[in-house]
Write a protein that binds this DNA or RNA. Structure first.
Lengths: 220, 220
DNA sequence: CGTAAGTGGAGGTGGTCTCTCAAGTTATGA
DNA sequence: TCATAACTTGAGAGACCACCTCCACTTACG
């Protein structure tokens, strides 16, 4: 891009920042589907300005998430550094979900939207062995059931991600309840479940959640 | 509508059937977002014919699901008829998911899409006490953990629904694995988990699943 | 103060979907 | 048999929406 070409004029540099900040906020809050018109308006600029700085939506997304996309790897490494293998695994699951809850755009990138394919593919390649090791250690310690597989981790993230999305406006922490339930299901034979600390929704909240639910977008 | 007015001409009646059949297939396979143009083409008819029979998408959907929408109530009643309260609850969860997996359109109606609000609201009102009773019985029998709430049921359906959608083309039965995991997490203190009978995806399948994943549609 | 760089936002382009209509076709019963 | 009301058809009208372009205007800076 035009990084080394020539320094941007001061106002242009300021606007670039405004765009990136606005985009970060909007993608985090509403996912990757926000339009560049939205971003421009939220930054207090015209659409043309956004397109002068970033050739396309795609380029903006890549620029924005270039660093953040590796955050998930850091979390897995943190889990592996944990002395207790079971805690290492469960804390990884929890912190990865926290990431998803805090940044919906990042979540959509990591879970597989077509955008930004290369970067994400590389990240996934780096994740696979880390996830496998997290699972292996927890099983070796006798804490994790033997029939749990590393490939289950992304699917659990997907399931809980659905709860994150649906309950965000009403009860943003509700996913922790279902993570706890699933974690109890992951314990090796003989381990005791822990009480659920996050209460269920009441019927009124449930209604609000269901009303806000939207089916996934059409494929193809 | 025009049910008692006057019998349809024979060809019109035949086409009405064709439309309903095509719509049933398409809604089941691809959800409520299919267009009426799709339905018409799939039925081998022109769009105009569809609109002569049904004023709008909405009316077609209502006609189609009028009966089927009560199926979930029947499943809950079946669960309550089960002598073993734990089996009653878990079989209900399983059969409700089977319903979701077999008919994506029905699933979208029941989980809360804006379409067909009245009917669905009534069904939900009938479901609430049944779900509550399923849970109460299982807890009274000492099989279900005490901190599980009836309101958790729709959320579990939502989570597992996400797996159903994502894995349908690759491993249509995979949701059973995660239902089993969750059910193990639901057992009262002291109960033993059962081995997972459905194997995890391999890494290649995982890749296909993730590539097919789509974020939920934008709200508002 | 000249000029290259930057800006704004209306609107072009291309896509989608729902639904209509006028011209042609077919079932039916008198 | 044939008059006619019912039916069929698919192109396209009308709405929407998102991406991106263009150019008259403004601004930074040597």
């Amino acid at each position: 891009m035009s990084t080394a070409d020539r320094p941007l004029r001061r106002d242009a540099e300021r606007n670039r920042r405004l765009i990136l900040d606005a985009a970060r906020d909007l993608f985090a809050a509403r996912g990757l589907t926000v339009t560049l018109d939205d971003v421009a308006h939220h930054a207090g600029l015209g659409v043309g300005t956004v397109y002068r700085r970033f050739r396309s939506r795609e380029e903006l997304i890549n620029t924005l998430f270039e660093e953040r996309i590796g955050a998930i790897v850091a979390l897995a490494e943190e889990g592996l550094a944990c002395a207790d293998p079971w805690l290492g695994l469960t804390r990884f699951l929890e912190s990865a979900l926290e990431l998803q809850a805090a940044d919906r755009g990042l979540k959509e990138l990591l879970l597989g939207t077509s955008e930004g394919r290369d970067h994400v593919a590389r990240i996934k390649a780096r994740m696979a062995p880390l996830g496998t090791e997290l699972v292996r250690r927890a099983q070796a310690a006798g804490a994790l059931r033997e029939d749990f597989a590393p490939q289950d981790i992304p699917l659990l993230q997907m399931m809980l991600g659905a709860v994150v999305d649906a309950t965000q406006p009403v009860r943003p922490e509700l996913w922790r309840r279902y993570l706890a339930l699933i974690i109890d299901g992951m314990r090796a034979d003989g381990a005791r479940p822990e009480p659920l600390t996050v209460p269920a929704v009441d019927f009124k909240q449930l209604d609000a959640v269901m009303r806000a639910w939207r089916p996934p977008q059409r494929r193809e």
